[in-house]
Simulated scan of single mutants.
Amino acid sequence: MKAVSTAVAGLAAVGLSLSACSTGGSGARDEGPARSEPVMSAAPSASPSVSVPSEKVDAVRLVKNDPKVSPAVKRDLKPCAGKTYPIDVSYGDLTGGSAADVVVNVLTCADAVGIGSYVYRAEGGGYKNVFTAEEPASVYAEIDRGDLVVTKQLYEKGDSVAYPSGEEVITYRWSAHHFTEADRTRSDFSDAVGGETPAPEAE
């Protein structure tokens, strides 16, 4: 009996180890729009209620064949180095469909600034664009507990890409076959950030 108990305990430990190894990442990143290096991310972030694609969606083809994407974004969507495109991809449940929705962010190669964010919903054996946000400055979309959260950097004349004047965070929820705005917050950043610190006055 003792040998049987030991064998069962060993099998349970192996099962726990395999379960831990099969756990995936979240897919969406928390750092905000700015990135030091543009890389392609396709880790699934879907809830168990949706079916994550067994193979990565060809996000580059989705964007290039999408009539809702501006010609400027399509023109800028080129490999940065080798065959690596400046694009982020995440999967999750945003629209309540049976398959995972796909969130695509197109970035610039030079400074990884987001220039376009798109949400694709699985329909009829393909994907349909159900959300588009394009900004000349910076925009980045991600999935947050079933909501679509879009972050926009706000720039004033003279601002560098690294130091915007502010930021808007907009939350969207799926309702009646489209996204509606649920919340919006704005932050104005200090002018001292990124600027020169004034020299102390002599006493």
Rank of each mutant, 00 (worst) to 15 (best):
L11A: 15
V14G: 13
G15W: 11
G15C: 13
L16T: 12
S17I: 14
S22V: 14
T23V: 15
T23P: 02
A28V: 00
D30P: 00
D30H: 04
G32D: 02
G32I: 00
P33W: 02
S36R: 01
E37Q: 07
P38H: 03
M40A: 08
S41R: 14
S45F: 04
S47D: 06
S49I: 06
V57M: 06
D58E: 12
A59L: 14
V60L: 13
K64C: 00
N65T: 13
D66E: 07
P67S: 10
V69E: 10
S70Y: 11
A72D: 14
V73T: 15
R75H: 00
R75D: 09
R75M: 00
D76P: 00
L77F: 12
K78T: 08
K78C: 00
C80L: 08
G82N: 07
K83P: 05
V89D: 07
Y91S: 01
D93E: 10
L94D: 02
T95N: 07
G96C: 05
A99N: 13
A99Y: 09
V103N: 09
V103R: 09
V104L: 09
V104S: 12
N105F: 15
T108Y: 03
D111L: 08
A112M: 06
I115F: 03
S117V: 09
Y120E: 06
G124K: 09
G125C: 12
G126T: 03
T132L: 00
E134N: 05
E135C: 07
E135P: 00
A137M: 05
S138H: 14
V139S: 03
V139F: 03
V139Q: 07
D144C: 13
D147H: 04
V150E: 03
K152N: 14
K152A: 10
Q153F: 01
E156K: 15
D159M: 03
A162L: 15
A162T: 14
E168A: 12
V169C: 01
Y172S: 12
A176Q: 14
A176L: 02
H178T: 11
T180N: 11
T180A: 13
A182D: 01
S187F: 00
D188R: 15
F189W: 05
D191L: 13
D191F: 08
A192M: 04
G194W: 06
E196D: 10
T197V: 13
T197A: 10
P198G: 14
P200S: 04
P200H: 01
E201G: 11
E201V: 07
E201N: 04
A202G: 10
